[in-house]
Design a protein around this nucleic acid. Structure first.
Length: 901
RNA sequence: CGGCGUGUGGCUGAACGGUAAAAGCGCCGUCCUGAUAAGGCGGUGGGGAAGUUUCCCGCGUGCGUUCGACUCGCACCGCGCCGACCA
């Protein structure tokens, strides 16, 4: 057993860094250690006077467990934050949560339909708190670094105060106005409904075609069609498609105007004499309302289609969204003669007092008797119903608070600001600009319970609503002081917030009712740059916003809107967006398909670092994919990187910086690798700076696989294992390996913080965790790179020949090989320069080099001689050095250090 | 239906308008057993003649611009995000 004794003289890698990390189990322990050491605070302290980089967090909604999209988003953010720290920035990360809003209110309401506003709000708060805690733990488990113990929370009184202060400033500047807008309304529940609160069911309704007499032309009528006769009392106009073809058809002594393609179904007999014209030809006409004493006009509207009805659309701005939009565009009032109970009001004339659905037959009768009714049919179609009481809902205009997008040129200023922001990817600019251009005024009020109140007061005598900055600020002040926060608006009387003795400036009234509406949740989160970032850090604007691409319409836009209105500047300098997570085939993840991948299961199975590596590997500029195959690949990549680190740590077990060889004295192959390392670092830093993390992770993986495992480390094994421990050759390599290990650990830290930390711990290098990354300071050596270019090409071809030899059974391992190379030119001189190192570089036992007149020629055969029992190379003659027969080099090593091991 | 994106081998993904399938992974074969639940080396798109040397087709589909198109333009299809779904 001579060999086993000789094995003891070989310097094999030694490390406590395990080959398999068991990350799912190890990471939680590491998290505890981070919490104990408070690494986030340490990092911040280490960068106390450094330039800062503020990534401002977009608050997730505190509802449900986190999904893979949350994980992608937070991991990308954490990579940025950790990278910025490693480049010497102070990069605070203040996570936030969005807590108000309908989904939570609906959840909290489940199983407890009753309750007053304050008790509903209490239940909502408890619900949001619960999920905030759950999500916080889930985010922390991913290794996200930040102020998780003191996040910004939109339902916290201090934040609510921030929202209100912002609102007060907007009111003061004249951005907030009250106007009517149609909303989905349940007459039974007497409340506005959100889109999420309606369900569509098949319903039977009347469908009538009605004649509107044209002004100034006798016996000429516009034919309109509707399924909601009760909206006719609110009719103020008719819309036509300006591009469509219409006809004036002669029908029994009358002229009916209708879309050409709809004439038949609208009651025009086939073959009727007809004159065709364009929709735009109709837009100057006026008509008399069929039963109300007023006239209306015909307007062009792109939304008019010809797949139903007559091609002429009855417009009631108080009862339909498109009607409302058109009405606003052309200056029609928002006429809504329907009250909260769904009853027609006095403005509806003879139909006053009837509920809208009862009014239908009465109105049809009236039209019938006045000869205005052309057709009366029944129709079934899907119609919205209240999800609660299951009754059909109506569209009804009610007063709402708006933020005026064109006040003080806000829209123009937004567009100007958009062009000055760095959008990553660049397409984001076009996307958000298009949305801003076409966005309507922002309706900021919601008729719900769970949110920040809009502290307006209504005069009891004249009904006028007053939204006053001083009242808002009073409430803000109360919020800051009272743990109940904005609840005080609902628990206290409105006069408590008014100046003493204040009376209604319109009518002198002294009694006031409080506004019950709350703010849209987008107002909450859109204010975060002041209510969180600026309040907490005194910093404004943020350097970076980083969210999913859906936020172009959401958070990015509304934050921008609020910021430009308040401050005239964008709240961010750069905006980065990522796509959505699809399954392995690029399909949307859905429960019904069963292709949902959760971050929880990946973390549990493979650890957070694998999930982070996946996030870092994908090209997030579009949608990204995640499925079993992709996950398996990520796991393999992780292992490759991990094992390379493990080997580096292993071969550095007996090295310390004091043993380092000065740069000029390094062995050429070590200098070569150092050069590669410089390139690696530069490219990785450039990748990080461009937010191209997939380039970074690919570059790191390739470096580990190709430069290190495939070449450098493989070549080095002989000298690291078999040379004398403190030989210059060995120390030279270790000098560079040391640097390589440092660099790699620092470069992977943003992506694989758990693994990097584990390695630093095993290496006893806690200093690396807070150190800045710097490329090794070495001058590029082009000559050396060229020479190694030649060597690597030759090596490739030698390997091909070796493989042939192996296939034919002549040799097994490459050390069984003897290589002869005939070559010339630059390659020849490069090889000659390294002649004595060629066996090592090629990992063979002997190399003969000769000049070639023509093409390069490589031959490989079985080496003769005897195998050294220590280093396994073949030599002409072995030396007897108990316990075995070894080569001269090995004998020398054992002589100088007999106890080596 | 509209706006904005996106589409390259089994997977992740490269490619100034100029030789496509870079590189990696996976897979297959093989060596090693001193990185060992590791590591090295080699091979690996489809179809057709054919056989170790050539030829044809292949960057979602189809047109177009060009001497030349993965790259530019148009249309269509698939997928995704955001909206509009109505009188």
């Amino acid at each position: 057993m001579a060999e086993s004794k000789l094995s003891g003289t070989v310097l094999l890698p030694k490390t406590s860094f395990a080959m398999r990390g068991q990350m799912a189990r190890q990471e939680p322990l590491r998290l505890e250690a981070w919490a104990r050491r408070d690494v986030y605070a340490k990092l911040r302290a280490a960068r106390k006077n450094a330039p800062a980089f503020y990534l401002h967090d977009g608050p997730p909604y505190a509802n449900g467990n986190i999904h893979i999209g949350h994980a992608l988003n937070k991991i990308l953010k954490d990579i940025v934050v950790r990278y910025k720290f490693s480049r010497g920035f102070d990069a605070p990360y203040l996570p936030g949560w969005d807590c108000h809003g309908l989904p939570i209110e609906l959840k909290a309401l489940e199983g407890r339909p009753g309750g007053d506003k304050l008790s509903i709000r209490k239940a909502c708060r408890a619900y949001a708190e619960k999920y905030l805690s759950i999500q916080r733990e889930e985010f922390k488990r991913l290794g996200i670094l930040g102020e998780f113990e003191n996040p910004y929370v939109t339902m916290n009184p201090a934040y609510q105060a921030g929202i209100l202060e912002g609102l007060a400033n907007l009111v003061e500047r004249g951005f907030i106005a009250r106007a009517e807008k149609p909303v989905l309304w349940c007459a039974r529940c007497r409340t506005a409904l959100a889109d999420a609160e309606v369900e569509y069911e098949e319903d039977e309704t009347p469908a009538i075609t009605v004649k509107f007499p044209v002004d100034g032309e006798s016996k000429t009528f516009l034919l309109i069609w509707t399924t909601t006769p009760w909206t006719l009392p609110a009719n103020l106009a008719v819309a036509v498609n300006p591009e469509a073809r219409y006809v004036r058809a002669k029908v029994g002594g009358e002229t009916w105007i209708v879309a050409e393609s709809r004439a038949g179904v609208s009651g025009v007999p086939a073959g009727a004499e007809a004159e065709t014209l364009k929709g735009s030809d109709l837009t100057s006409l006026t008509y008399r309302h069929p039963f109300a004493a007023r006239t209306g006009r015909v307007f062009p509207a792109g939304f008019v289609t010809l797949d139903a009805g007559t091609g002429l659309v009855h417009i009631a701005p108080g009862h339909g969204d498109e009607d409302f939009q058109l009405g606003r565009k052309v200056g029609l009032p928002t006429f809504c003669p329907v009250d909260a109970a769904g009853k027609l009001t006095a403005d509806a004339g003879e139909f006053a007092g009837r509920s809208v659905f009862d009014a239908n037959p009465a109105i049809i009768d009236k039209l019938e008797s006045s000869g205005s009714l052309v057709k009366h049919e029944k129709m079934t179609h899907s119609y919205p119903h209240c999800w609660r009481c299951k009754k059909p809902v109506i569209f009804r205009a009610t007063p709402q608070w708006f933020l005026k997008v064109d006040h003080e040129d806000l829209r123009k200023k937004m567009l100007a600001a958009i062009s000055r922001i760095r959008w990553v990817p660049a397409a984001g600019e076009k996307r958000i600009a298009g949305m801003v251009e076409s966005r309507p005024d922002w309706c900021i009020s919601r008729q719900r319970a769970w949110g920040v109140p809009i502290p307006a007061v209504h005069c009891e005598s004249c009904g006028k609503a007053h939204l006053r900055p001083d009242v808002i600020r009073n409430l803000a002040g109360r919020c800051s002081a009272d743990p109940a926060g904005a609840d005080v608006w609902f628990s206290d009387s409105p006069s408590a917030f008014l100046p003493a003795g204040w009376t209604c400036p319109d009518c002198g009234g002294a009694k006031f009712r409080r506004e019950e509406d709350i703010l849209d949740v987008w107002f909450d989160s859109g204010m975060s740059h002041v209510a969180a970032l600026e309040k907490r850090y005194g910093v404004w604007p943020a350097d970076l916003y980083l969210e999913g691409s859906d936020q172009h319409r959401g958070w990015f836009q509304l934050s921008l809107l609020v910021a430009i209105a308040l401050k005239g500047h964008a709240p961010f300098r750069q905006v980065l967006t990522h796509g959505f997570v699809m399954d392995g085939e690029g399909r949307k993840m859905s429960k019904s398909i069963g292709n949902v991948v959760t971050p929880q299961e990946i973390v549990q199975q493979h650890g957070a670092d694998v999930l982070r590596l996946w996030a870092a590997s994908c090209d997030y500029s579009g949608d990204v994919r995640l499925g079993p195959a992709i996950l398996a690949e990520t796991v393999d990549t992780y292992r490759r990187i991990r094992n390379t680190i493990r080997f580096l740590l292993g071969v550095l077990f007996d090295f310390e910086p004091r043993m380092a060889i000065p740069a000029p004295d390094l062995d050429p192959i070590d200098r070569y690798l150092l050069g590669r390392l410089v390139v690696l670092t530069r490219e990785c830093l450039a990748g990080y700076d461009d937010y191209d993390f997939s380039a970074v992770s690919r570059r790191l993986r390739n470096f580990c696989a190709e430069d290190l495992s495939g070449f450098y480390l493989d070549v080095l094994k002989d000298r690291l294992y078999c040379d004398a421990a403190d030989s210059k050759r060995r120390r030279s390599s270790q000098t560079v390996l040391w640097t390589a290990c440092e660099q790699i650990l620092q470069l992977i830290t943003p992506i694989l913080p758990f693994t990097a930390d584990e390695a630093m711990e095993s290496w006893n290098r806690p200093d690396l965790a807070t150190a800045e990354i710097r490329p090794p300071q070495v001058a590029p050596d082009e000559e050396l790179e060229q020479v190694f270019g030649h060597l690597l090409r030759v090596r490739k071809d030698v390997n091909l020949k070796i493989e042939e030899c192996r296939k034919s059974g002549q040799i097994g391992g490459s050390l069984d090989a003897r290589v002869s190379i005939r070559t010339a030119g630059d390659e020849g001189s490069a090889l000659r320069m390294f002649e004595s190192s060629l066996p090592e570089i090629l990992i063979v036992s002997s190399v003969e080099l000769s000049n070639s007149a023509g093409d390069r020629d490589i031959r490989v055969g079985r080496v003769s001689g005897e195998k050294c029992e220590r280093c396994w190379k073949y030599v002409p003659a072995r030396i007897a050095a108990p316990p075995g027969l070894i080569c001269a080099r090995c004998a020398g090593v054992l002589d100088s250090a007999p106890g080596q091991a």
